[in-house]
């Protein structure tokens, strides 16, 4: 899941690199992707709260990831009218401290959910349909899992 969703993330025009798991653990690239997905919701003031100069400081990474996840949860709740199921929520400490790809994959899956339900979803879905078939299958399975666990 993580590898496929990283490939999907690379289709966004972010200042921060989305090359691999390490690039994503500080939360900066994911925040920039969310801003591209819905700039009205994940606006500049929200984006400016994500600290970019992180280095190896796991505390700042954890703080950024918490803001990203809180932003996503608010989006699901307010815009999509859903509560995210507990078993879809990532363990952020495992991402910030151990660069865990499984937990990072869960976070990316939630970002995917934002993309395929937002106002510009047509654009994002069409981009997904240009990806390699094997990646599309993983993305489809990820979306189906989100849909099957929706709590309205």
């Amino acid at each position: 899941l993580c590898d496929s969703l990283i490939l999907w993330l690379q289709t966004f025009n972010t200042a921060q690199s989305c090359k691999d798991v390490q690039d994503l653990t500080n939360g900066v690239a994911m925040a920039q992707v969310l801003h591209e997905i819905d700039a009205a919701w994940f606006d500049k003031p929200w984006l400016n709260r994500i600290k970019e100069d992180v280095g190896d400081n796991w505390r700042i990474k954890a703080s950024n990831l918490k803001k990203v996840l809180q932003g996503i949860m608010d989006y699901y709740h307010e815009f999509l009218g859903q509560q995210i199921s507990e078993d879809l929520l990532p363990d952020l400490s495992r991402i910030s401290e151990h660069s865990d790809p499984v937990e990072l994959g869960r976070l990316l899956q939630l970002i995917l959910g934002c993309a395929v339900n937002c106002e510009k979803k047509q654009e994002h879905i069409q981009v997904i349909m240009t990806l390699e078939e094997s990646v599309q299958h993983v993305v489809m399975a990820a979306i189906q899992e989100l849909m099957s666990k929706e709590i309205v």
Partner: peptide, 30 residues
């Protein structure tokens, strides 16, 4: 050719799925 058939089926499944997503109302749950 079975492998070509499988490939076409897989593409069809993907296309159906993503097209159904496109027709879903924006912001609404699944």
């Amino acid at each position: 050719d079975p492998s070509m058939k499988a490939g076409a089926t897989s593409e069809g499944v993907l296309a159906n799925f993503f097209n159904s997503l496109l027709s879903k109302k924006t912001g609404s749950p699944g």
